[in-house]
């Protein structure tokens, strides 16, 4: 390469000219903003949550009430007025929303993905995909209103006559509807990436389209499907407005019933939990906002305590989802 001195002499070096450097720096700063955003989120959550927990607050010289980490993680009562900040009732509410929405979104989402990737004609797909995107695009505050104004009365009239005005069921239904596109689009991408040779091999063996879809395409795309499940559940955990409006404001642990199985009675989570008002983590955060947040009191700081828990859970799930997608991905060349 070095022999080509003439070319080097004649070439104008432009990579490091002031104009190129300036432009390059500008673009780099833009990209770096995303790192700063993450750093900002972590900094704010950690520094404010640190003033909430007793163990860390004493090092920061915070005066006023604090809550110990153990009480926060194991407390079974959450009461803003009573200054009791146990996160378990809120986790229990979030779990209900997750289970309820997953029961709706996961099967429907996978079925949609199979239909779009294996059965639908390009024309049908061109109409269905934007329609599905609308499900995820409807503002969540509108979903909350739908749940409380239309879905709960319908459930009350036809299925559960004694359902509460605020209840976990209608909130789960709308959250389930809004995360269907998340499951279907990521799963469909995974299914579309399955090479046609595998399908052709199946048909060559005499398999029907049903056999190929369920026996070849779905297993081959399983890593993408699982990662879409985790992402959708993480979205359901972080969903705020729909549950803040429709799920209620009664933080309580999952009620248990029990069945007699001979000598012992086995406890089981009572499904009736869904028919009453509950409060998930995000709902509690919205409610905390209506206590005094300007002064930086205990309610304000507990907001960050719950926030860092929420952030940790969703971040963990996103990382697991990425890991599954890349670790168990079938590589086709």
């Amino acid at each position: 390469m070095g022999a080509d001195n003439l070319t080097d002499t004649l070439t104008r070096q432009t990579e490091n000219s002031p104009r190129e450097l300036l432009v390059r720096t500008f673009f780099f700063v833009c990209a770096f903003v995303s790192i700063l955003t993450t750093a900002g989120i972590v900094f704010v959550l950690v520094s404010e949550a640190a003033t909430f927990f007793t163990g860390t607050a004493q090092f920061l010289g915070v005066t006023g009430e604090t809550v110990s980490l153990v009480d926060f993680l194991t407390g079974t009562t959450f009461s803003i007025a009573g200054d009791q900040f146990g996160v378990l009732p809120l986790l229990s509410g979030t779990l209900a929303i997750v289970i309820g929405s997953a029961v709706i979104a996961l099967p429907l989402g996978v079925a949609t993905a199979i239909y779009l990737s294996e059965y639908a004609s390009p024309r049908v797909r061109a109409y269905l995909k934007p329609a599905l995107e609308i499900l995820a695009g409807v503002p969540t505050v509108i979903y909350g209103f739908f749940a409380i104004e239309y879905i709960t009365p319908l459930l009350k009239q036809y299925l559960f006559p004694d359902i509460g005005f605020f209840n976990a069921l209608s909130a789960s239904i709308v959250v389930g509807i809004m995360i269907i596109p998340m499951v279907s689009s990521i799963s469909e991408d995974a299914m579309s990436a399955v090479p046609d040779e595998l399908r052709q091999a199946g048909y060559g063996m005499g398999a029907t389209k049903f056999d190929v879809s369920t026996g070849i395409v779905v297993p081959a795309a399983i890593s993408g499907i699982v990662s879409s499940f985790i992402l959708a559940i993480s979205r359901a955990i972080g969903e705020t407005m729909a549950v803040a409006i429709a799920a209620g404001a009664t933080p309580r642990l999952w009620t248990t019933g029990s069945v007699d199985a001979g000598p012992v009675s086995l406890p089981y989570p009572d499904p009736a939990y869904f028919l009453e008002s509950i409060q998930p983590m995000t709902g509690a955060m919205v409610q905390l906002l209506f206590s005094d947040i300007t002064g930086g009191g205990l309610a304000y700081r507990s907001l960050f305590g719950i926030g860092i828990t929420l952030f940790a859970i969703t971040l963990f799930m996103n990382i697991v989802s990425n890991w599954i997608a890349s670790r168990y991905q079938e590589a086709y060349d």
């Binding site: 770096f32 995303s34 790192i35 959550l45 404010e48 926030g307 929420l310 952030f311 996103n318 990382i319």
Partner: peptide
């Protein structure tokens, strides 16, 4: 790092962005 970071930021719940706005 930037790419992974952007993918994770897209999954952060919107209420957490609100906490960033409030706190910072």
């Amino acid at each position: 790092l930037i790419e992974v970071n952007i993918a994770n930021l897209a999954g952060v719940p919107s209420v957490v962005y609100g906490l960033l706005g409030l706190g910072l």
